[in-house]
Amino acid sequence: MRTTESASYYNHLEKMSVNELLTNMNKEDQTVPHAVNKAIPQIQKLVEAIVPRMEKGGRLFYIGAGTSGRLGILDASECPPTYGVPHDLVIGIIAGGDTAIRKAVENAEDDPEQAWADIQAFDFNAQDTVIGIAASGTTPYVIGGVKNAMKEGLLTGCITCNEGSPLAKEVAMPIEIVVGPEFVTGSTRMKSGTAQKLALNMISTSVMIKLGKVKGNKMVDMQLSNKKLVQRGALMIMEATGLEEEEALAMLKEHGSVRNAVEAFEKRV
Score class of each variant (00 low, 15 high):
V36T: 03
A134F: 13
V269Y: 07
G137V: 08
V220A: 06
E152Q: 14
V171G: 10
P80L: 11
A264E: 04
E246C: 00
M202Q: 04
L60W: 02
A39Q: 01
L154H: 12
G84C: 10
R59A: 06
C158N: 05
S77M: 11
I143V: 14
Q120D: 06
T185R: 08
L229S: 05
A49N: 14
N260I: 00
F124Y: 14
A168S: 15
G186I: 03
P52T: 07
G186T: 04
G96R: 09
D221T: 09
S204T: 15
L252C: 06
S136K: 00
T31I: 13
N201M: 00
A104Q: 12
C161R: 01
Y10M: 01
T129Q: 04
S17R: 04
M219P: 05
G153R: 01
E55P: 01
G64V: 03
G92A: 08
M150H: 13
E28P: 00
P80M: 12
T156V: 08
G57P: 02
A104W: 03
R259T: 12
M238D: 01
E266L: 13
K215R: 14
G137W: 09
A115H: 01
S165M: 07
G92E: 04
G69V: 07
K27W: 12
P81R: 11
R59G: 02
P166V: 02
G66I: 03
T129I: 13
D98E: 15
V262H: 02
A250G: 05
W116Q: 00
A248K: 03
V130E: 05
V171T: 13
A250S: 13
R2F: 14
K218Q: 15
S206Y: 04
V90D: 06
M190G: 07
Q42E: 15
I50A: 07
A126D: 13
M219A: 08
A65S: 10
T129N: 03
P174E: 12
L198A: 12
S6Q: 15
S77G: 06
I119D: 03
S165Q: 02
V130K: 03
I50S: 06
L71Q: 09
L235V: 10
T3E: 15
K267Y: 07
V51I: 14
V90M: 14
P41K: 07
I91P: 09
G57E: 05
D110P: 12
M236F: 10
S6G: 00
S187F: 05
N217I: 09
Q44H: 13
G157N: 07
E247C: 01
K45P: 00
G180A: 12
G212A: 10
S225V: 15
S17D: 12
I63M: 04
K15F: 09
T4R: 02
G216K: 11
D123F: 02
L211W: 11
Y62Q: 00
R259I: 07
L21E: 07
V220E: 03
